[in-house]
Write a protein that binds this DNA or RNA. Sequence first.
RNA 1: GGGCACGUAGCUCAGUCCGGAUAGAGCGUCGGACUUCUAAUCCGACGGUCGUGGGUUCGAAUCCCACCGUGCCCGCCA
Length: 584
Amino acid sequence: MLLSLRAEVEDALATALAALDLPSDDLGIETPPEDVPAVLASSVAYRLASEAGAPPPEIAANIVEAIDAADYEYIGALRQQGPYVNVLPSDRYLEATVEAAQDEAFGTLPDRETSVVVEHTSANPTGPVHVGRARNPIIGDALARVLEYAGYDVERHYYVNDAGRQIAVFTWAYETFDESDLPEPDRDSPEYEMVRYYRKGNTYLEEAADDAVEDAEAEIQAILQGLEDGDEETYERVSEVVDTVLSGMTATLERLPAEFDEFVKETRFMRDGTTDDVVDRLQDLEAAVYEEDAWQLDLPEIEKNLVFLRADDTSLYTTRDLAHHEWKFDNFDRAVTVLGEDHKLQAEQLVATLDLLDHDTEQLEQVFYSWVNLPEGGMSTREGTGVDLDDLLDEAIDRAREEVEDRLDDRLRDDHLEADDIERIAHQVGIGAVRYDIVAKQPTKGITFEWDRALDFEAQSAPYVQYVHARCCGILGEAASAGHEVPGEVDIDALETDAARDLVREIARFPAVIEEAADDLRPHVVATYTRDLAEAFNTFYRECPVLTADDPETRAARLAVVAGSRNAVANALDALGVAAPDSM
RNA sequence: GGGCACGUAGCUCAGUCCGGAUAGAGCGUCGGACUUCUAAUCCGACGGUCGUGGGUUCGAAUCCCACCGUGCCCGCCA
């Protein structure tokens, strides 16, 4: 609804400025501070002061004078306040918001008929998912959800690096070492069992005698060469390792939840010939140079050359990724990739090269996040340092369960939580808190992982917002039992309190927040919004009794606001990928 | 050495892209509110050279430059 109001304000300001013979290229529309009773404001008067040769307040007054709010549906009134033009919404704006929010899909924007592939996580299939990379699936999945709400047709892809040296080492180690020489796995799950071979193999390569290492290296090279040559038997040996590890990693990611429509393997682009095709075209580019026996690209604006074909004629990760991205461009209108900041240079090279190959690189957008570190340093699968995501989630659920049980005794309400309910709430709150903590922050900021902070259920966390949803459900449930129906539309006069109207204004913002998050690829703004919405709801909750309202009209109107709040909170949490519990 | 990111209250962060009204939250500390639709809530107090210095502007946390601090990157690895 805010989107409609903003469109009206743009039209009104542009019309007024034209009538005053002033330029209207910058309307200066902004959100006023909290204590100003307006929904939108314009500081355009400042910008035009010198042009118009008049002080800003005078210009603002003239603008207000030139606009008749009656011409618009959602603009209630315009007020000049100092140099600002403030926009007060009409009653119709509030009524229309409550009506729109009755839709369970509230916040879903019209279909854009645009397909987007969101590639995220894409962690090498070498072992358990650890917390260091947990930011990727959480941001990526939230991004995919936000884009879906914004009307895009979204597919989620995991790009599987199944062709590199690490995987060759892994395959060799898996075929070479005997399970009896390995430590017990940390968990009864395929990736925990498999990573033992990988670690053992890496240790061996570092510590074994030179000739033994040489033999091992020869076997590893043979695997790499087999993949390069498209040898089917080698491919199957590698696939067994990759698929097994990946199945375990996928199961962990599903807990977040983060699910994928497709796992796209790097070897696919070696096997179908497209990587060779890319190499051919790259060699024909003016920027291509043959130096030190290898084919390289001298990319504009980037100091370092990009090697795309080794001296031994084999391709590199980036070469295959070029073929991968050409495939994406062929099949999707837009491509979004979530990457760790350590991939920034490579990502720049990728874009620059795609540009040289005459692709429209506007189609590709990359979102970077900084690594999660432990207080004592980084996390590594190979070295086995770090915190496994499974452990973090288990611990979060355990702490949430304790929390639920502690609160059972204090509950005023004697509705019975069964054991199933406790378990459900512990999962929703525990995992929600971890996820929210990560998705609510700007991805570029560094995070140091600390147990207590990651698992704080108070603070500005998921449970605060989830609790609002539970409260809404509680009221709606009681209302239903008492036979009170939620009206599809409301008479705004029945919502006389500031608390109720402020809440409705907050609900009205939701579609605009989705649009902003999708346009800027910043899902964290949705998290910021959920806090504002939750705060407005809690004020309403305290000041406006619903079931025991003074008269049936007020009760009905408030009930509609609660139902709208529920939909807004539920969908905002859903867009973030955080569960919305019906009770807590 | 070069490139990129980050630096806002004791702590964790919004706000920065797109300059605009007295810089906002939470945690912590202190003090209050449960016979009232769930107190995982609410109300109040305390707490700020927006890293430092310059510049642009009517106006700078926001834009530009320099510097300081921290992180990441600078493989014929992925």
